[in-house]
Computed example of a mutant assay.
Amino acid sequence: MEMGFHENEQNQEFSNLMEIGSGHYGCSHYRRRCKIRAPCCDEIFDCRHCHNEAKDSLHIEQHHRHELPRHEVSKVICSLCETEQDVQQNCSNCGVCMGKYFCSKCKFFDDDLSKKQYHCDDCGICRTGGEENFFHCKRCRCCYSKIMEDKHRCVEGAMHHNCPVCFEYLFDSTRDITVLRCGHTMHLECTKDMGLHNRYTCPVCSKSICDMSNLWKKLDEEVAAYPMPKLYENKMVNKMKFDISFSCVCLWLCRLSDLD
């Protein structure tokens, strides 16, 4: 009975340490109970994003700009007792849990478990969404939803480049990313912005990013409604075609331009 009492007491103490200060510390990027000392500039920041916003912005002279190397972080500061220490989940001084989710490989802390964080060894970083919902594509070298496992088109290093619209590096971006039909990737928000400006082709390869069959059908109907003059019926113009569907209207559009 006494052993069981002490065990319950220890469990309660552990639970308290997990909850003390939870949700009350952190920054706009993460809820966490510690800060990090940047190994690159020896300054203290709430997280790597806070560091990058301060040290890698256009307001900083170009030769001073730099990003924080996340895997090289070796010191953290407890937000409750302000003790600086080696990277670990619980504070060495007050014992509080500095992050309910903790990754010793990425030196990453987060109190918001609703994100379903997990570490992908192949990517080498932590991701969100639940490990059970994603798979790592060896050729694309990134994690995709399991819904796409046998359906996506592989592109070597698909996310290891900047978004072709906003130029933010995609691989470790915190914003939602979409995979286009051609296999290229970009931010979902940027894709929607393109649609608002009637842009429906991949910025990288110029192939259609959505089903354009209704548009092609409409154009075919317009072509049929306006037959070409006999003088131009057999005139051919060579044009580069990026999309199979596009080829059916390309010739007609080229011919119209020749009439001007």
Rank of each mutant, 00 (worst) to 15 (best):
M3Y: 11
G4P: 02
H6E: 12
E7L: 15
S15W: 03
S15E: 09
S15P: 00
M18V: 11
S22V: 12
S22Q: 10
S28R: 12
H29G: 00
H29V: 01
C34E: 10
I36T: 04
E43K: 12
R48T: 08
R48G: 02
H49T: 08
C50Q: 01
N52M: 01
A54C: 03
A54E: 02
K55I: 00
D56Y: 11
S57E: 10
L58K: 08
L58E: 09
H59A: 09
H66R: 03
E67V: 07
E67D: 05
E72A: 07
S74T: 14
I77M: 11
T83L: 13
V87D: 02
Q89S: 00
N90M: 06
C91Q: 01
G95T: 01
V96K: 04
M98N: 03
K100C: 06
S104W: 05
F109I: 05
D110V: 00
L113M: 13
K115N: 13
H119F: 14
C120V: 06
C120W: 05
C123A: 06
C123E: 05
G124V: 00
I125W: 03
C126D: 11
C126S: 13
T128R: 07
E131M: 05
E132C: 04
N133D: 10
F135C: 02
F135M: 00
H136I: 03
R139W: 05
C140T: 00
I147W: 06
M148Q: 03
D150P: 01
H152C: 07
H152R: 04
A158W: 02
A158Y: 06
M159D: 02
M159H: 01
H160F: 01
H160S: 01
H161I: 06
Y169K: 00
D172V: 01
V179F: 02
V179C: 12
H184I: 07
H184Q: 03
M186C: 02
M194I: 00
H197T: 12
N198Y: 14
R199W: 03
T201V: 12
C202V: 02
C202P: 03
V204Q: 09
S208C: 14
C210E: 13
M212L: 11
M212K: 06
W216T: 08
K217S: 13
K218S: 15
L219M: 11
L219Y: 03
D220Y: 03
A225I: 06
P227A: 09
M228D: 14
P229N: 10
N234I: 09
N234R: 10
N238G: 14
K239D: 11
K239S: 12
K241L: 12
I244C: 13
F246W: 08
W252V: 09
R255N: 14
L256I: 15
L256K: 15
S257W: 05
S257M: 14
D258S: 15
D258Q: 13
L259D: 02
